[in-house]
């Protein structure tokens, strides 16, 4: 048992060295080094964990100030157009979740001072579920959900 732990510790310190080598060899992406891509949030299997990791809280206030435009029925889950608009004076981030996906967090958009709280993109949905949008404002998280019926899922294969 003790031997085992020592081994893990050893592996750990070796691992740290290997990361440097991997970066040098271009095995690790410069993207992940440059920016803080929130891996834990994106890997999270439920929305609440993803939100806590991404925005520090999962308490969302349902708000009609958050508008989601998405189709009622998506024939192809691989391409579901989603537009999110926040009728707020200031938004820090806009995040989009597909509640039925194995990792629900799809995208998070960081706004700048000049941003208008508006984003539009196309997402993959595994099955019929809610598209959830969360707008981070200085007063907290505002959210809305829009159910989308998916005829053919877009995540498997």
């Amino acid at each position: 048992m003790i031997d085992n732990k020592r081994r893990i510790l050893l592996k750990g310190s070796l691992g740290a060295g290997a990361v440097g080598v991997a970066v040098g060899a271009g095995l690790l992406t410069p993207g992940t080094v440059l920016a803080a891509w929130p891996k834990t949030a994106f890997m999270a299997e439920d929305q609440s964990t993803a939100l806590k990791d991404l925005l520090g809280s999962d308490s969302i206030e349902d708000s009609d100030k958050v508008k989601i435009k998405a189709p009622d029925i998506a024939e192809n889950g691989a391409v579901v157009p989603v537009t999110v608009e926040g009728e707020v004076s200031s938004a820090k981030t806009i995040s989009i979740f597909a509640a039925g996906n194995s990792t629900p967090l799809i995208a998070s958009f960081e706004m700048s001072e000049s941003s208008v709280p508006f984003v539009s993109t196309r997402i993959k949905m595994a099955k019929t579920a809610d598209v959830v949008a969360v707008v981070q404002t200085p007063d907290g998280l505002l959210g809305a959900a829009k159910p989308v019926k998916v005829t053919i899922g877009g995540c498997g294969g």
Partner: peptide, 14 residues
Amino acid sequence: QVVMTALWSGGVSK
């Protein structure tokens, strides 16, 4: 001047 940064998963369409 950076006006927007998007962080994405593989859940964004092809």
